[in-house]
Computed example of a mutant assay.
Amino acid sequence: MMRNWLPFLFVLLFCKSLTAQTVSIDKEKLLEYYQSQRYAEAAQYLQSIYPSDTQDIKALGQMAYCNMMSGKLPDAEKNYLQINTLQPNSLPVLFSLTNINTRRGNNAKARSYLAQIISIDSTNFNAYKQLAGLTDSSGLKLAYLKKANVLNATDADVAYDLATAYRNDKQYEPAYNVLKIAIAADTGNFILQQTLLPMANQLGKYKEVIAVGEKLLQNDADANVMKDVGKAYFFLKNYQKCLSLYKVLEDAGTVNEAIVYYMTLSYRELKNYEMALVYAKKTIDEGISTNTTAYYGTLAGIYEEKKQFANALTAYKRGLTFSSSNSIYYRMGLLYDLSLKQAKNALTYYNLYLKGKPDPEKDKEQIVYVKARIEALTNPKEAVTK
């Protein structure tokens, strides 16, 4: 019985081979598509030449590439999966599948392909580098970056990301060392040099910060560089130079609490006590968030919900020490009026609320209510009669 099938099987295989051999590709036409980056047309052309069930890996690879370059990611994935079935464990194919899934936001699937790559090649730098960018776990990210950095210590992207991760973990010396190696390999990389400055400051390498920072400032007057260089000048007791840099930041409106604090200390060291007082006050102002009053108002509201009225009053009053707030005046009026039954105090805060000139349209209902309560508390007998 099997012998009867053999001639038929031979003919079938021969025809299939013949078909494969008769596929004719216009190479000049395909090259023109590639050179003009008309990848969608190139993919259509290849699909018109090869049958849909082709197992020609070279043809599938061409179609996959063209589909990926033209943004037809589902078609590209289908092609690469076909290749992966026919020829498993191909690193270029697995990387392409990773790329497709990363572009589509399917990070879990992308990570699974990268894990396959590492199982095949445990020293693959690019796989670890990409895994670091696809994980939400800070611990895993650090582990992948460290592995990638061991494999290629001069890669600027990995060095930057690893140094940043170390810095976030307050590991300043490892961060500094990673950057120094990468900078030695690319002395013109200003991004790495700028990233180095805060690490060097933390390690007390102030002269290096100034040397590197001043060169960077010749290229671009970056605020972060000025901040780091100014700090280095301060610790080297060059207070005038520190102030000159920080004055530039102040004029540009980019100061923060730390900067005005160092300006305060610099003026004090220069015995300019009048200016030291001015900047000491500015330091206090910078240290207070514009939302601090609102935060205390929220805290007080929670105390009210828990019927802890004394704590609520303390929180409200604490909030008012940072800035006046009509909302808090209103809430305190209600608290004294309705919960604590202290009419005199309620009137005080109701009146403060009205003096704060609430919005006549937005706060119309509150204004009407407060005026009614003031009338009722001022003339309780008349309110009862009415």
Rank of each mutant, 00 (worst) to 15 (best):
D251A: 10
Y349C: 06
V255F: 03
Q47Y: 10
Y206I: 04
Q82V: 09
M63P: 06
A20G: 07
N101E: 14
T123Q: 13
A343M: 12
Q116H: 10
K362Q: 08
T298A: 05
Y50V: 06
K16S: 15
G139R: 08
Q342Y: 13
S289V: 04
V150D: 09
L265I: 11
K147H: 15
K362R: 13
K129N: 15
G301N: 07
V229L: 08
P88W: 01
Y261N: 11
T123F: 11
N149I: 11
A300R: 00
F190W: 01
K16F: 12
E173Y: 15
Y239C: 08
Y353D: 00
D337F: 05
Y176L: 08
L338D: 12
L12N: 15
V11W: 13
L86T: 02
Y206F: 06
K170L: 07
V209Y: 03
L352P: 05
R167Q: 03
L236C: 08
E361G: 10
K282S: 09
L142H: 11
K307R: 03
R331F: 05
K227Q: 07
S323P: 00
A76F: 07
L217G: 09
Q47P: 02
A211N: 05
V93W: 03
A153H: 05
F14I: 13
T264V: 13
V23L: 14
N272D: 14
F10Q: 10
F14G: 11
L334D: 06
T264W: 08
Y233Q: 04
T102Q: 02
G287T: 08
T290R: 06
K306W: 07
